[in-house]
Amino acid sequence: MLDIDGVSKRFGDRQALDGVTFSVRPGELFGFVGGNGAGKTTTMRIVLGVLAADAGEVRWNGKPVDAELRRRIGYMPEERGLYPKMKVGSQLRYLARLHGLSAAQARASIEHWTERLGIAARTGDEVQKLSLGNQQRVQLCAALAHDPEVLVLDEPFSGLDPTAVEVMSGVLREKADAGVPVIFSSHQLELVERLCDRIGIIATGRMVATGSVEELRARDGSTVVDVHGPPSGWAETTTGVDVLESNGTRTRIKLADGTDDQDVLRAALAAGPVHEFRRWRPPLTELYRDVVQDAHTEEAPA
């Protein structure tokens, strides 16, 4: 288990991180979302020891992460980092060897991963001659080559075409299934929702929510239902119901606490034929918006 425990970091007079705490379990894909400047990259840099935290601790299996453990993390920095004039193959071998692989291990591993990521034919080319998408595959290859125990990827999906997104998702899922905790940041919330086991939302340096999408949905506690069929007007007169949206035969209602959804269904049926009566599950984009909004309103009076 990777524990980020009470990590704080200040840059000048700006509090970049304020007691950030969350855990990523082995075999779990953890999506790290938040606005620009919210603290995602700073958190990841602290996990990798590239930045030192002012307070707090990062632990892997209960032990503080030290230089030796960090070497066994696979890292993909936000600003891609490769020598532009170095050949892909020798560059990847060099990085793998810095992570402690022998020359032979490095060669075998690079062969495996460049094949898997579809860049095997480009190993003899200079990095700067590759397209940005392919450079990103090289970067992922660099993060994977030493068979890391933990994967920390900053925006691995940005700038990838749909095929590359599929390849990248497949690889991350595969690593997670093999028992590696995988944490990645992204602004593509649909992708995060589809891919991740759990999600952490960070706003202005503080974790405002963590959990599975289901758990984030349950956070609100209310039940929202989409009803299709009866002409509008029926819901306004039903007790325990709040109309959120109404558009012809489509009505979105919010049930007050303790309201029996069967009673509401009966009221709808009384108003006309019901073709659809379905609990509405807000997508992550909406959950994210609510959570971040809440965070800002909480902060405003302070």
Partner: peptide, 17 residues
């Protein structure tokens, strides 16, 4: 400067001092 500009230094410093 090349390492700093290409940000490869971040990757390197995640594994060596």
């Amino acid at each position: 400067v090349e390492e700093k500009q290409s940000r490869v230094v971040e990757l390197l410093l995640a594994t060596i001092k």
